[in-house]
């Protein structure tokens, strides 16, 4: 069943239109990756889905409900949690406070969820009282993901989680993403690091110039010679 269905989405900033009609689907339980060159609209698509950027034409449906015009404040309440590529933590707040903000719309006692996050990312527990701004890049990325997980999202949207990380850490991040997926969270991933991300993905899309270029299963895209030449560096 299609969990998320973006159809012919047109969006952009000010007078510049970046997406000229992009369609993607995420099914329940899947990991889906979007790859493409810089400026092709990958991040804009994510922002359009969560409501940070207005959808000018086309539609976004989540579990059959039209969310094209919803604010981020509303989309987060129905289980869409988004991790931006940069500036994805609250630097002057402690790690615990960051997680509390992640649970902002929860009405139950979310302490157990914080404990679960500390189980998942033990390093965070050790530095729970530190300010997020003092964390290293890898820890910060983990905190950003943990913050988004506080709500038990149905669909997690990750914008380039491996960007700016030391190569040694990258494989670990993708393993974590796979782990999170195995707990039942569907994942939509935008990545520069095409090879690693396609490897863990059920399906993938290639965007170029604000339109769909290719779509296939993850392994098939990995084997596609054209994708290999352009995006996987030979």
């Amino acid at each position: 069943m299609a969990l998320l269905e973006a159809f012919n989405v047109v969006a952009g900033y000010g007078e510049t239109e970046i997406l000229h009609g992009v369609s993607i689907t995420v099914n329940t339980g899947e990991v889906v990756t979007i790859i493409g060159p810089n400026g092709c609209g990958k991040s804009t698509l994510m922002k359009a889905i969560v409501g940070l950027v207005r959808v000018r034409a086309g539609s976004v449906h989540f579990r059959g409900v039209d969310i094209s015009d919803q604010d981020p404040e509303q989309t987060v309440r129905i289980g869409l949690c988004y991790v931006p590529q940069t500036d994805n933590v609250f630097p002057s707040m402690t790690i615990r406070e960051n997680l509390e903000i992640g649970a902002f719309v929860r009405r139950d006692d979310y302490q157990f969820r914080i404990d679960e996050m500390f189980e998942l990312f033990p390093d965070l527990r050790r530095s729970a009282r530190l300010k997020a701004g003092t964390l290293s890049g890898g820890q910060r990325q983990m905190l950003a993901i943990a913050r988004a997980l506080m709500l038990d999202p149905v669909l997690l949207l990750l914008d380039e989680p491996s960007a700016g990380l030391a190569p040694a850490l990258v494989a670990g991040v993708f393993k974590r993403i796979r782990d999170i997926n195995s707990t039942g969270v569907s994942i939509l991933l935008v990545e520069q690091n095409a090879r690693e991300s396609l490897r863990i993905s059920d399906r993938g899309y290639v965007l170029s110039g604000g339109v769909n270029q290719l779509q296939d299963t993850g392994p098939a895209l990995l084997d596609n010679p054209e994708v290999g030449r352009v995006y996987l560096g030979g």
């Binding site: 940070l52 404040e73 987060v76 931006p84 609250f90 002057s92 406070e97 903000i101 902002f104």
Partner: peptide, 24 residues
């Protein structure tokens, strides 16, 4: 307080506050 934390979060990073569901 929850509101106080929301205020600090908004001050730190308005976009992230928004996608965390804070009623800005």
């Amino acid at each position: 307080t929850k509101m106080g934390k929301a205020m600090r979060a908004t001050s730190d990073n308005p976009t992230l506050a928004l996608v965390s569901g804070i009623n800005t």
